[in-house]
């Protein structure tokens, strides 16, 4: 297992001079699950985007190390997998084509083909793999997002509302992979679902701080 540290130091975000959140600090190591909670509009999704490197914080510092080497912020993309409602895959492509595109741009080896098939099976969309994503239901799209996020075996898996749009089968598949991620890397998720929160070692409320 890789040695990982993920540190957030006093990060704050302002939009048009309005404070979304401020001074959020935490330190995570491999083998931990970190949950972010908070009311709607409290900035959970903004925090998730900042942690993934797709938004930059107004103030504060984020440090991510893999085996003691500092990964330059915000270029975390080789190490991070994100699943969220605002993240979409290409609807004009099939599930297979989407995953194949991801494999190519991430320069993943041939073993990722088997991993893609395994993930499609695990999330129950293998039989629909040749269908264009625009014909998928919202639940199937959510399952495909998990396949895409897990394809490169990320060191850090970030989930925004992990069980949204999913039926019981999908939720079970997600929880299985959340458990695996917690053992092998770092799991960060934003949720208000009590069942999801049971996975967390630390729960951080955006409004009130650590619990």
């Amino acid at each position: 297992m890789k040695k990982l540290t993920f540190k957030s130091e006093n990060i704050s975000k302002l939009y048009n001079r309005k404070i979304i959140f401020e001074k959020i600090s935490f330190l995570l190591n491999e083998g931990t699950a970190f949950a972010v909670t908070g009311k709607n509009g409290s900035g959970k999704s903004t925090l998730v985007k900042i942690l993934c490197g797709v938004l930059t914080p107004t103030k504060g510092l984020i440090e991510f190390t893999v085996d003691g080497k500092l990964v330059p912020y915000p270029d975390y993309y080789p190490h991070i997998g994100l699943v969220s409602p605002y993240l979409n895959l290409y609807e004009e492509f099939s599930a297979e084509e989407n995953l194949s595109f991801i494999m190519k741009v991430r320069s993943l080896g041939s073993e990722s083909v088997q991993r893609a098939e395994m993930l499609l099976h695990e999330f129950g969309i293998y039989d629909h793999r040749k269908k264009e994503v625009k014909y998928y239901s919202s639940g199937m799209k959510q399952r495909l997002k998990y396949c895409a996020a897990l394809l490169h075996e990320p060191s850090v898996l970030v989930l925004d509302e992990p069980s949204s749009n999913l039926d019981q089968y999908g939720i079970e598949a997600v929880r299985k992979f959340m458990k695996i991620q917690k053992q092998n890397g770092i799991l960060i998720f934003a949720t208000n679902d009590k069942d999801d929160l049971e996975f967390a070692d630390t729960v951080y409320s955006v409004e009130n701080g650590k619990r």
């Binding site: 993934c52 993309y77 993240l87 979409n88 895959l89 609807e91 991801i102 741009v105 991430r106």
Partner: peptide, 16 residues
């Protein structure tokens, strides 16, 4: 518009 720009940002570096 399709919400795929963030997906692309999470996959590859900006120069590519």
């Amino acid at each position: 518009e399709r919400g795929t720009s963030m997906t692309l940002r999470l996959l590859v570096n900006s120069s590519s």
